[in-house]
Design a protein around this nucleic acid. Structure first.
Lengths: 346, 346
DNA sequence: TAACTTTTTTAAACCGTTTAAAAGCGATAG
DNA sequence: CTATCGCTTTTAAACGGTTTAAAAAAGTTA
């Protein structure tokens, strides 16, 4: 055992070949379970390889095969639980395929995203799953694909990019939440968090607008408080929200992080979220259920997004046909305490 | 532009060499700014390379140089904000070194950790930063090093492993928190979360015990509620905590996630954390400051751990001497509302 | 035993880069 | 006119695997 340490020599195919008196071709074939080598030879080779601690050199192999076994995953921020859950399901899906994946945050910085894609190209990655940064041009994706890096998008679409996209039906989702608040008797409803610069942002806002309009309710510009999608941002927005003239009685938040931050901010100001102000989130992250009060939110099918994206990418790699159509996953409303009980209409 | 698409041929060094009537060696040297090539030649080459969209093939290069530019980072769970913050500082530190890093969770599963290390070896990674899974034998690390994969540990130590370790002084940290609670007048203090199976777990518990003992206070077995280090676990522990006979008035939690979960659980039961029960956390994650109530916690120097680990690894790669001694980072107490105001001693 | 199959193994080309050593070349010195 | 030198470029051999046509060995049939 541990001969590598004694010899101090790198162990390669030829080390095994020499020791057993066969050729490197035979060893290569045997280790990959090729039917071309006799059972007995294969066993001898595999056994010896294990014995001396042989380590397969993927770089050398991939140079010849042009398959690196590396997949890239780029998201906005892995610390965002929404992406974290997607990542987990991608991980689960890819684990059994034997691919390793390279992870990167782009923090919505286009240059960082580009440099990561460049790295993937240099490493000969087999494919990439990405939640594109704000402002990603279709050409960036086309370029990757031209250079042998097939892509699949999640969460956000890119205008003009001819690749599969997996995301939730955002407009439908915020409409669900807004209608729920309306049905509880709320007439003045704010929307906190998010930005118009992403397709997701526009869709979520649109769903809210549509629901309000359909119910014949007015929407004041001051009721829209855009911002980052973090707890901190939600917390910070509380101050501004509480001072709105003729303050709304309910808030439809961009996501759960913003909602939880906002509830914390509201509580800090001495009001009780879920009683004094109704709040809804979006994504249904794990924490939503244990927040205080438990958060009413829109389940967004993160698991599903990750799973489908991963399997679509694997299909693409293996030359199986993949539909280009945007796969819209239907969200569901999960009602908890934060949206409160019905209030009487004025 | 985009000639690669028209030709349909892979662009390599020789493509450029042929086009310009020079050898591949010259092209290789020129692209790497070697002083060996004439300025004019270099410019011609670089310009042409950009023109036709040449992509450097790192696999081929690293086959020759045996430097892959890949570093591995293995942690328990990247979605845990404690690790997430460490990752961010590692990322910052490594970004300027031009190394890309491969990330993986092991979820304390030794086999998963092994398979990731194996992948790193196969890819010829230059080094690895790891927070070892429970039960990691020193031999696993020694094996990696023997095969040219230098390692640096974070957060947890491995008995007998001769590699640098960067972690906070956990015993000192929980002692800080416990002493704080004692100084506020608490006499019955519980400890929630964590396990004895990791060095960190033992140290944190020991710090709590030491502080209690030093103050001449009794510690009942029922006051120790071990468990996972998640919000959900903290939330779940609330039920058990609230039914302890002669219930403690304060809780020293394993980390901030557990503390926040516990506070949510306590609030759900109608009690007010920070008033009815004093709670402290550990790590001082970003969320601690905006939790309700704001969490008193122990700052653990995550930034520092990540930064030092990354730079130690780079030192190791470049053959600079690295001290083996465990670097203990001194934690600091950050007092906020969750530990409440002094209570009168009975 | 020869001829033909089938199974097993091998040799050599190849993947795209790096690098030590060799070579070309104009200028300067002897 | 030749020798030496510096600068620039080229040659050719790695790096460690995979692939495939072809050779060798073993097994069948006539």
């Amino acid at each position: 055992m541990a001969e590598e340490a004694i010899l101090g020599q790198k162990i390669k195919l030829s080390t095994i070949a020499d020791a057993l008196g066969v050729s490197t071709a035979t060893v290569s074939l045997a280790l990959r379970d090729s039917p071309l080598v006799a059972d007995e030879t294969r066993e001898r080779i595999k056994h010896h390889a294990r014995e001396i601690g042989y380590i397969y050199n993927r770089r050398a192999a991939s140079l010849r095969t042009s398959r690196s076994g590396i997949l890239g995953v780029v998201v906005h921020d892995i610390m965002n639980p929404f992406f974290a859950e997607i990542l987990r399901s991608i991980e689960t899906e890819l684990d059994r395929s034997g691919q390793t994946f390279l992870l990167s945050n782009h923090y919505d910085d286009l240059e960082k995203q580009r440099s990561f894609i460049d790295t993937l190209l240099q490493l000969g990655a087999d494919g990439v799953i990405m939640s594109p940064a704000i402002g990603t041009p279709a050409e960036d994706i086309a370029m990757a694909e031209r250079n042998g890096l097939p892509a699949v998008l999640i969460a956000r679409a890119v205008e003009g990019a001819e690749v599969p996209v997996f995301r939730g039906d955002d407009a439908y989702g915020t409409a669900l939440a807004t209608n729920h608040l309306i049905s509880l008797g709320h007439r003045r409803i704010a929307m906190v968090g998010g930005t118009d610069q992403t397709s997701t942002g526009r869709h979520r806002y649109q769903g809210y607008l549509d629901a309000m309009t359909a119910a014949g309710l007015e929407v004041k510009p001051s009721w829209r408080i855009p911002g980052p999608r973090t707890k901190q941002a939600g917390f910070d927005a509380a101050g501004r929200f509480l001072t709105i003239e003729d303050r709304p009685t309910a808030v439809c938040c961009w996501n759960d992080l913003v909602a939880i931050g906002l509830m914390n901010g509201i509580a800090r100001a001495g009001l009780v979220p879920g009683v004094d102000v109704a709040v809804t989130g979006y994504d249904d992250i794990e924490e939503a259920a244990i927040a205080t009060p438990a958060l009413t939110t829109v389940w967004n099918g993160q698991r599903e997004v990750g799973r489908r994206a991963a399997s679509a990418l694997l299909d693409k790699l293996n030359g199986r046909p993949v539909r280009l159509s945007q796969e819209l996953i239907k969200p569901e409303l999960h009602v908890r305490q934060s949206s409160g009980v019905p209030i009487k209409t004025p």
